[in-house]
Design a protein around this nucleic acid. Structure first.
Lengths: 354, 354
DNA sequence: CTGTTAGCGCTTTCAA
DNA sequence: TTGAAAGCGCTAACAG
């Protein structure tokens, strides 16, 4: 195995003397033109004679000049070619995928992404947003907590800062949103279980008002459509939404006199906990999760899930944001992306005969 | 389920007129002091009479003033309270965990984090770094590719930009590094398998010169220590390092006339592929992975791994970087963090009798 | 088409 | 202890 980074010879760098980052003034001097001309060339404003532009470009390359984005962003009406990305725990593959996609889209448009992870504390989150505004980000992609985002209207200076909410809308706050069709997902999951003969279908709900609430709504809808009464003891709203929470809750469910024969888990974390509880009880309980995750198909009973497309969601959201920043994009948008059921085994288990 | 974000009444915002972000000048005017005094208070430079300072602070709160970080960063010798974070695919839980920890540490110190994901292209990466330098980041946390980072020395202006390399060092480039004890990990994994009676131990190596090479070195060392000759057909260096690659390679290994009875997978992705291949062949092959991952204990055969602590690695690196930025931290540092073997079952499978 | 100039909001001498 | 003033590097009038 080769050892990397061998060699030790001095690296000259692209012409420019080390010790000072070249400025537009330096470029102007070298090209024998005025400062403004350099700016025009850099910003591709046209109205520069090709020959002059070429001289400037040469000087730029020779000096290794790169525009100082900080200085640029200081000018009124200019933004920083930076967007802020606020989301939850990156350890959750759902958020990680969102982040990856958002960064990819933004970077492709030469925007930088400032990442802030916010864990459930509205105070902290609001402070984080203020910081970002203070840094003159051009816009924000936010996976909103259940906080109040209307302050964004104020924080924002002359015209409202472009904001796109992802995964959950944020009523009252200005901004577009890109969300999943959560209710349809809940309906699909539940109908699938009912279709396999289950009548006692439990549902685990995490305390996120929006997504999980919609998924529950879908559950109720499917139950009603199938004329199966909902046993409210099988509807469990968790306090935390952690795998541990879900594991405990599932255990309790299985300990009921009339335990459920199937469980619909409204998030990936909840599914994880339920799998543990079901596995420990070595019981045959049907399971459907929400959000796909990497090794779902490798589990002892491969997990059937309502798969979402977080990548596309983040891409869409970021593109929308960039369009807004650009000044295009018209009226407030609210996109709803489809979900789909992926059958893998755990959702196709039939209830015990009887 | 309550619907969030109800209510519609106008939100007044903290005093200040909407439509213009307050500046230090506004604060100064309101407090009846000079601009410089406000700066002194904001920066806690002392040498301000307590009463005056108090008036300024009141004005700051009343106006909802927040320092414009962009303007601040423009001054020479000032940095932007922003660090750059360059790493690989966030979809890999290893990188996701690194990112999470780095952001947490940085934000706690009121530093923003600009995230760039770089996928294997040195050109793209170098451009990304240039961008970050152009944005006057105060420092960089980098999970280096096998590129050449010496240009950092030049990019950097008067004094070298603080840089900390994570997971892999970067010879030739200035900067501290925080890495794992990869060789020890490789030795532990291999010795563990040998200790359970295996003699034909295969190893899957991903094409990352540093980490994986060290892990392989550990493998060879353990084999030598146990006086087991290495069959080079069992040492497989993959072209891509993807799970698919690993799956195919494992399949080939199992198809050998004398197949291995154990496989040491030098990354998490490789373990994933190997698990698939082994599962598909429904063969009893011992497996040890590198890097722990979320559901490893839920697999049909729970995966034994050499567990690393990416969280601590990123925390350490970020703290080191902040210390450097702060001007403290002395000579160039190179930290090596320990790893540990986590037995879960797959690594304790014994070879078929014979 | 091109150059000169006036700031953006802040930190930092330099005087008072 | 405090204020006035000079820029940081850039963009956007405004002249030429």
């Amino acid at each position: 195995m080769a050892e990397a980074f061998a060699g030790d010879d001095a690296y000259p760098g692209p012409e420019g003397r080390a010790g000072a980052v070249p400025t537009m003034r330096d470029v102007a001097e070298r090209a024998g033109v005025g400062l403004a001309t350099v700016s025009r060339v850099v910003n591709e404003l046209g109205s520069v004679r090709p020959a002059t532009a070429e001289r400037v470009r040469t000087a730029i390359v020779e000096l290794g000049f790169q525009r100082n984005e900080v200085a640029r962003a200081l000018r009124p009406g200019q933004h920083s070619r930076t967007i802020g990305l606020l989301l939850g725990d990156l350890t959750n593959p759902f958020y990680a995928t969102l982040a990856k996609a958002a960064v990819a889209v933004a970077n492709a448009a030469r925007f930088a992404v400032v990442l802030s992870t916010v864990d459930e504390d509205p105070e902290v989150e609001q402070q984080a947003i203020r910081e970002l505004v203070g840094r003159r980000v051009a816009g924000l992609v936010i996976v909103p907590d259940q906080g109040d985002y209307r302050f964004l209207l104020e924080e924002t200076g002359r015209r409202p800062l472009p904001v796109v909410f992802v995964d959950r809308p944020s009523a009252g706050a200005p901004g577009d949103s890109v969300v999943l069709d959560n209710e349809a997902g809940g309906r699909m999951a539940t109908a699938h279980l009912l279709g396999h003969g289950h009548r006692r279908v439990a549902v685990l709900v995490a305390p996120s008002y929006y997504t999980t609430g919609r998924r529950l709504r879908g559950y109720r809808r499917a139950m009603r459509d199938a004329d199966v009464p909902v046993d409210e003891r099988l509807v469990v709203t968790l306090r935390q939404g952690t795998p541990e929470d879900a594991e405990a809750a599932t255990r309790s469910l299985l300990a009921l006199a009339e335990p459920p024969t199937a469980v619909f888990c409204t998030t990936g974390f909840l599914a994880e906990g339920a799998i543990r509880a079901v596995g420990a009880a070595s019981r045959s309980v049907a399971l459907v999760g929400f959000d796909d995750f990497p090794l779902a198909d490798l589990l002892p009973v491969p997990l059937t899930v309502v798969a979402t497309d977080p990548e596309r969601m983040a891409e869409t959201a970021t593109e929308l944001l960039l369009a807004r920043i650009d000044g295009s994009a018209a009226t407030s948008t609210r996109l709803v992306l489809p979900v789909r059921l992926v059958e893998r085994g755990s959702g196709e288990i039939r209830p015990p005969a009887g």
